[in-house]
Amino acid sequence: MTASYRTVTPTRLAVRGTDVAPASTVRTTGALLAVGTVAWAVGMAIAGAHEGFGWQSLLGGATALLFQAGIARLLLLQYRTGAMGDGPLARGVYRLQFLFLAGAVVSTLLDAFWLLHGTPVWMAFDLCWPLSMATMVGIGIRVAIAGRWTGSIRWTTLWAQSWFVTSIPVVLIVRDAGLWVASAQLISGYALLGLLLARHETVRTGA
């Protein structure tokens, strides 16, 4: 028997409830998020809690930057599609989150090259990382409540963006072993969300 195919509607997300995000934009965002997440999860597991400049800090920094690029694209997609809603509060939260994310990127660069550690400048940027991840939790909850993103994408977004509250406490308690838990949650959350956003338009259905 010959294989049959069916066309699946590409991922289309409402932009502020009226327009749609181009399928190519959604797929590109998903691909970058999936690749960046897996890269950082593996890099974090390999580098561990290493301190000081070296290949571990560079590996952790490079993969973290790739993950942060995926997060930035995800936030842009959520903002464009009004995933939390159209009100000024939702837009303000996204703008605040982009500010925190920018600070977290600087923190990642400082850690990668082990610069200014222990100084007030380093502490200020280092604080942006947990602030950014904590804000992602709130955004994920609001996206789920708003219901503009539907189906598996809606609930995977909630699970992915809960990473800060589901994994960081484990890392703080069991240290290096907890990094494997954090990596696993990243892959089951953000990486899976990326794959859902990047799914193909045409799938094989039989043989």
Results as ranks from 00 to 15, higher is better:
5 Y>H: 14
5 Y>P: 05
8 V>L: 13
12 R>Y: 07
12 R>W: 11
14 A>W: 06
15 V>M: 15
18 T>I: 13
18 T>Q: 15
20 V>F: 07
23 A>M: 03
26 V>E: 12
27 R>F: 03
30 G>Q: 06
34 A>M: 07
35 V>R: 13
36 G>Q: 14
38 V>L: 13
42 V>Y: 00
42 V>E: 03
51 E>D: 05
54 G>Q: 12
60 G>D: 05
62 A>R: 08
67 F>A: 03
71 I>S: 12
72 A>E: 07
75 L>D: 05
78 Q>H: 14
92 G>V: 14
92 G>P: 07
99 L>C: 03
101 L>Q: 11
101 L>M: 13
103 G>Q: 10
105 V>Y: 09
105 V>L: 06
112 A>W: 12
114 W>H: 10
115 L>C: 07
120 P>G: 03
120 P>W: 04
125 F>G: 09
127 L>C: 10
132 S>Y: 14
143 V>Q: 05
143 V>G: 03
145 I>D: 10
146 A>L: 15
150 T>R: 15
152 S>I: 02
157 T>R: 08
158 L>G: 09
162 S>Y: 06
163 W>I: 09
163 W>F: 15
165 V>M: 11
168 I>A: 11
169 P>F: 08
178 G>W: 11
188 S>Q: 01
189 G>M: 13
191 A>I: 13
192 L>F: 03
194 G>F: 10
196 L>M: 12
197 L>R: 10
198 A>L: 07
198 A>S: 13
199 R>H: 08
202 T>A: 09
203 V>G: 01
206 G>H: 07
